[in-house]
Amino acid sequence: MNEQLTAALAAEEAAIYAYGVIGVNFDSDGDRTEARSAEQAHRQRRDYLVTTLTDPPASPAGYELPFPVTDRADALRLAIQVEDGVAQAWRPVLPVTTNADRGTALAAMVDAAVRATRWRRSAGVTPVTLPFPGRPQS
């Protein structure tokens, strides 16, 4: 279970970092509010994982973005990628958890998927949904 939770933690930490970059590339209050609340949600999941893991690894010092982010379109693309990635990281936690822990994992995955759909709609990406959120995309 630690292996899966550690991977989820890495995804949440990457998301927190990414939202810092995403936020500064947004101009409108609406986008910024959305990004802030997403970042907050990821911080809460991160805190949950840090307290749940017996020996949580230290967070990495820095990240390399998958592509340069210099405007709103880039930021939205990164936000979609980040949320898809978070959902993918939580999915393997489901089979190794039960009861409340599984409920938390599912909620984390569902929330990430819903945010990804919102960002897709903001970016004008269609379709706005994936048939199997969290399933690794080929």
Partner: peptide, 9 residues
């Protein structure tokens, strides 16, 4: 879980 997430989206 994926189906639950998809329905939420």
């Amino acid at each position: 879980g994926s189906i639950a997430a998809c329905r939420a989206t």
